[in-house]
């Protein structure tokens, strides 16, 4: 049986893991390679690294992080942030990433999804989508970009379906309203998108305790759940979260290292 994935997300700025609340103010919380290695040893199923470095000339620092992660972490990982071309994608794939996530760049230039899928295969191309509740939109959710600061004219559901048609192999769906609250994922949004598309959906934004993951993976119909703060600050270990999910009857990977 296909298992529900637990994904840990690390925002990386100038080579350090950083964490912000509602994209306002960031604090460095550690070395991304060391943190990734720790999560790997605890049995994380997948990792996501977002490059939130402001300046493009510092991009090399991030590629170096990706290479060091690839050399010692043997689970899949996705890289996003600042990817605007097939060449950018190639650079992170050659550095050892499995998947590439495009977000704002895909909204501004949707063809990048087609180009990426044609060049590297749909399984490589992840659509990162930030959605905010908006009664004016048909689905009730609007796509926002630039970390939630800029609203677009796209409806979240329509954009998810379009991205799938264009060749995206997965969607990381982040609720801007829930992000940073630790009050739980946005269940109706996640369920709506996950039921509509034929590709896996990773729920993001709002995780504060293991019950939240169980909820979004069952009621929310998500294929995977993404967490950040709840593991970065040591509130919960990967194993604790997985044990909770297992007890809730969800299929998760519990056996992950030889005795």
């Amino acid at each position: 049986m296909l298992e529900k994935r637990l994904v840990v997300c690390l925002d990386v700025r100038d080579g350090k893991t950083t964490k912000g609340i509602k994209f306002q103010g960031n604090v460095d919380i550690g070395d991304p390679v060391e943190m990734a290695r720790l999560y790997y040893e605890q049995g994380v199923d997948e990792l996501v690294f977002y490059d939130i470095t402001a300046s493009s000339e510092r991009r090399g620092i991030f590629i170096d992080v990706v290479e060091r992660v690839a050399a010692q972490i043997f689970v899949p990982f996705c890289v996003g942030g600042g990817i605007g071309s097939v060449e950018d994608m190639r650079a992170v794939l050659l550095a050892g990433a499995e998947k590439i996530s495009v977000n704002s760049q895909a909204v501004l230039n949707p063809e990048i999804i087609n180009a990426g899928a044609a060049a590297f295969g749909a399984q490589c191309i992840v659509l990162g989508m930030d959605a905010a509740g908006d009664p004016d939109m048909k689905s009730g959710y609007r796509v926002v970009i630039n970390g939630g600061r800029t609203p677009t004219d796209k409806d979240a559901l329509e954009w998810a379906l379009e991205a799938e048609r264009r060749g995206a192999g997965e969607i990381v769906l982040n609720s801007i309203d829930a992000d940073g609250t630790q009050d739980g994922y946005e269940i109706p949004l996640t369920r709506m998108i996950s039921e509509a598309v034929g590709i896996p959906v990773v729920a993001s934004g709002g995780a504060g305790k293991p019950e939240h993951l169980a909820e979004v993976l069952s009621e929310g119909k998500a294929d995977a759940a993404l967490v950040a703060s709840m593991v970065h600050y040591g509130s919960y270990s990967i194993a604790e979260i997985k044990q909770h999910l297992d007890a809730a009857g969800l299929p998760v990977r519990l056996t992950y290292r030889p005795e």
Binding site: L2, E3, D45, Q123, E170, G198, I199, P200, D223, R253
Partner: peptide
């Protein structure tokens, strides 16, 4: 098979 409610690609960890 498509249209069976299964998501394709089959992506993730499986026993």
């Amino acid at each position: 098979p498509q249209g069976t409610g299964l998501k394709v690609p089959h992506m993730g960890w499986n026993q």
